[in-house]
Amino acid sequence: MAHPRILVFSGSARTGSHNARLASLVGQRLGENGAEVSSISLRDFPMPLYDGDLENSEGVPENAVALKRLIQQHHGVFIASPEYNAGVTPLLKNVIDWISRVSEPSEPRMAAYKGRVFALGSASTSPFGGIRGLANLRLVLETGVGALVIPEMIAVPNAADAFDPSGGLANERAAASLSAMIRALIAEASLRMSKAA
């Protein structure tokens, strides 16, 4: 069986970010379960804050086009999404918004979000594990940009103590929901292997 390609990144570029650790763990587990994983940092795709005037005068930033094309080379995308004030981070929202503006003439609008499947997770120092931010992000992806998002999510509460020394999840419930999400993401990404480039 061929291996679905899955892109993994975090909505925070902060050094030591709990969500970057979560992204790293998810990438590792996806790899162990047969996916071909590309892990990136949004730090390598800097973009100015979205501004319609800027877009009119200079077009979409090159990094948005590059990231859009990279997404299109994958059958699945996992986003580790930090929660800032019950919502999505400005860094991640800005990336999603710029990418929503990029389509080739032959493509549907918001092309990066079509033809592949998305999965979400969050790590948070709060006892809720960032679930409010995830609900917000799900809405943006689904009703805003038309992405297909699997229902399985991984929410890691009390993130400062959540990872064991090897980078795994100490909490059994979180570990079980991680495994369920990994299985579902790989199954759904595999379904799309004939469709995506």
């Binding site: 679930i131 609900a135 799900r138 992806l141 689904e142 009703t143 038309g146 992405a147 297909l148 998002v149 699997i150 229902p151 399985e152 999510m153």
Partner: peptide, 13 residues
């Protein structure tokens, strides 16, 4: 449906 019941729901409505 999604968060409460774990259903897979298409984005188009």
């Amino acid at each position: 449906l999604e968060v409460g019941l774990g259903a897979f729901l298409i984005p188009e409505m």
